[in-house]
């Protein structure tokens, strides 16, 4: 039941955070092991999804600090996303796809906390209140981190485009 409901969500969170498909598999497994160990601590009056996301966030950031995935590069965007994107239409826009590639690569340049809030807010569409609960941060701090991350990604996109146009 838990696996059917949450494995996809957790796997995607781990993949977007770590950027490596194999790493995301390992991380998802570790998070579910932790979940089974900690399930008895869950307060039934609280929101389970937020609780699980907090547990996942803690694990992902702890693992990041211990292993520093940045030493290894992120998977290429096309490697797994191309087959997953059923809406992809070659005529729809090569530029849009290129933008997605650059934004995906740009995620690795964000600090782990900033990357996590960007994933929760802009990819998973969580509210600021939910993110504040998951990250255990004040609402204002979450908003400023999201804004900082967005600006950083937009500037990375600009730099990458300039490099691309410079080489053409």
């Amino acid at each position: 039941m838990l696996i059917d409901t949450y494995s996809k969500k957790i796997f995607n969170l781990a993949y977007r955070f770590a950027g490596s498909y194999e790493e995301a598999e390992d991380l998802t497994q570790e998070i579910f092991v932790k979940l089974h160990h900690s399930l008895f601590k869950f307060d039934v009056e609280k929101n389970f999804t937020a609780w699980l996301l907090t547990l996942s966030r803690n694990h992902l950031i702890d693992r990041y600090r211990k292993t520093k995935w940045e030493k290894t590069s992120r998977d290429s965007f096309d490697e797994h996303h191309l087959s997953a994107d059923e809406r992809f239409n070659p005529e729809e826009g090569i530029l849009q796809r290129e933008t997605k590639r650059m934004v995906w690569d740009g995620l690795k340049q964000l600090s782990p906390d900033t990357r996590m809030v960007i994933i929760l807010r802009d990819i998973q569409g969580k509210s600021y209140d939910e993110i504040a609960e998951v990250m255990d941060l004040p609402l204002g701090t979450v908003k400023s981190r999201v804004n900082r991350g967005r600006l950083q990604l937009a500037k990375t996109l600009k730099d990458k485009r300039e490099v691309l146009h410079g080489t053409l």
Binding site: H81, Q96, V103, I123
Partner: peptide, 9 residues
């Protein structure tokens, strides 16, 4: 970001 496809585990 909003249009990133979700992967199937």
């Amino acid at each position: 970001l909003a249009d990133m496809p979700e992967l199937e585990p």
